[in-house]
Design a binder for these strands. Structure first.
Lengths: 202, 202
DNA sequence: GTCTATAACGAGATAGAC
DNA sequence: GTCTATCTCGTTATAGAC
């Protein structure tokens, strides 16, 4: 028995280990406050872990922890992307669904929860190799997911590759614009334009 | 005589006052390091001004100074936008010119000098009203500039307004992607796609 | 694996002489 | 307007008991 037995509501919340609590808290804080704006003490507080535990699991300190949190955000956004893009056989409609989902989540968080990694990505350009690598991997992952769906929709491989980059970039930019304007409009309009662009292929 | 007479090379560099040196230094540092990553002491050092001078001109402290620096970055990017968009009668070509200019500057700075305000914008969402306002004004300014050129190119007013938002957002996203990938490709490809999108209007 | 204490340093901001 | 000294607080990181 490695975990304390909790007979009531065992399926509600799977007990999550300290390490994962730290990673999740870090991911959320980086999303909202960026890398420099987030302190390790705040992370340990929010994760309900002690400072000693944080350095126990991440001896590399803040950078190592941030890189792991970026990978967490990577997968989080990938899940949303796959859900949205798989929602319709029409790829244009699917992209519009994506922007709608992003807009809904953004409004629900009072425009706080944008892209989980963009702020940290911008802050660490050319200054934190471990983080930069995780960021680059995330973008590559998202592009690959979009490429796959574009190819499945009948777009040629090379066109699909290029378009996927534009789709991901444009979602990033639109999410930033929506946060700044505190409005869903930039995301929704951009979804419409992306669908229109995709419709010109084939 | 308000300024010391310098008879030699008077046109080379117009002597710039302390206040402006501080604003310029802040703008550049915010662009590269973001808001939380930039210290006032570093600013005063880089601007060759004393800490006392910084607080003399900006009694509101870091927030007031950052807001002013955002306005500086606003105008800086607006100049580039106007130059690029005015470079051709064909609006698609003009947008491609813009992305080419951005790509060139980005590479020249070793992928450091992206959008002058996006990092600070992301970091301060919902946490620094004076900065948020300056950021929102900058985006509105850039959208207005693009809208004007789209209308001049014969696109209907409402379409132009929506497209301008997408153009600005997409440039933002593509610049981020280019910095991360350390490659001009995201910007150049995005320029091509934007031109293609614009060509479907009329 | 968890906890507390603390070292070493830098941040934003202020005071007051000049 | 400029300069220096300083206050107070928070930061990352480490040490070592439990």
């Amino acid at each position: 028995m490695k975990t304390p037995e909790r007979t009531e509501t065992p399926e509600k919340t799977t007990p999550v280990g300290t390490r994962e609590r730290i990673v999740r808290a870090t991911s959320r804080l980086l999303q909202r406050q960026g890398y420099e704006g987030t302190g390790i003490k705040q992370i340990s507080r929010e994760a309900e872990a002690t400072l000693g535990s944080v350095y126990h699991f991440f001896p590399g300190g803040k950078q190592e922890l941030a890189a792991e949190a970026i990978r967490h955000g990577d997968e989080e956004f990938a899940v949303l992307l796959r859900a949205g893009l798989g929602s319709s056989a029409d790829i244009g409609e699917a992209v519009v669904t994506c922007t709608g989902m992003l807009a809904r989540e953004l409004r629900a968080s009072d425009w706080q929860d944008g892209c989980p990694i963009s702020s940290t990505a911008l802050e660490t350009v050319g200054r934190a190799p471990a983080i930069e690598q995780a960021v680059a991997a995330a973008f590559a992952n998202w592009r690959a997911i979009v490429t796959e769906h574009l190819v499945a929709a009948g777009i040629g491989a090379e066109d699909a590759r290029e378009l996927a980059g534009t789709v991901v970039s444009t979602l990033e930019g639109a999410e930033l614009a929506a946060q700044i304007a505190r409005s869903e409009e930039p995301l929704l309009v951009t979804g419409k334009h992306l669908a229109r662009l995709l419709a010109t292929y084939r």
